[in-house]
Amino acid sequence: MKSISAYAIPVIILVVLIAGMYKGVKVYDIFIEGAKEGLTTVIRILPSLVGLLVAVSVFRASGALDLIIYAFKPLATALSIPPDALPLAFLRPISGSASLAMVSDIIKTHGPDSFVGRVVSTMMGSTETIFYTLTVYFGAVGIKNIRYTLAAALIADFASVIASVWACRLFFGG
C-alpha cells in the first residue's frame, strides 16, 4: 500500500511533463517561470507564520492550554471521549508536530492497539492542523478578514473528534 504514495509523485510529474511536450509547451522555460512564483509566495507567508507560531508556543509553554483542557474535562466525560485523548483534541488544530509527539507518547504508554491508542491514531489522521493551514493559505494572499472560516473548520474538527471515538467503538468495541 505504501508503494502507491511512492509512485504518486513520479507519475504526476511524468504526466505533467509528457502532456506539456505533447501540446508543444516549452516545458523548461515555463517551469522556471512558474517556479519564480513559488519564491515570492513563501516570502509572503513568513510574517504570518512567525505570528502564529509565537502565539501558539506562548499558549502552550505557559500552561494555558492545560488549563483549557482541565476546564473541558466534564464535557469530555459527557461525550464519552477517553480522558487521555482529550488534550490531543485541543492540540490537534493548533500544532501538527506537537500533536504527533503527543500521539506517540500516548501510544507508547497505553499501547498502539489499546482503545485510547486507536482513538488518538484516528484523531491524528482525520484532520489537519487548522491554524497552520489557515495562516499559510490566507497569509499567502493577504486576506485579513477570514469571516466564518475558522468557525466552520473548528466545527469540522469537533465532528472528527466525536466521530473518531464513535468509529473506534463501532470497529473495535470498548
Binding site: 509547451v25 517556479a35 512567525v50
Partner: peptide
C-alpha cells in the same frame, strides 16, 4: 517559522513550476 519556510521553499518552487506547465498544456 523561518525553518519551516526554508523547508517549504524548494518544494513550493517545484510545484508551482510544474503547475505552470500543466496549465499551459491544458
Amino acid at each position: 517559522a523561518v525553518e519551516l519556510c526554508i523547508g517549504l521553499l524548494g518544494v513550493m518552487c517545484l510545484w508551482t513550476g510544474l503547475m505552470a506547465v500543466a496549465e499551459k498544456s491544458g
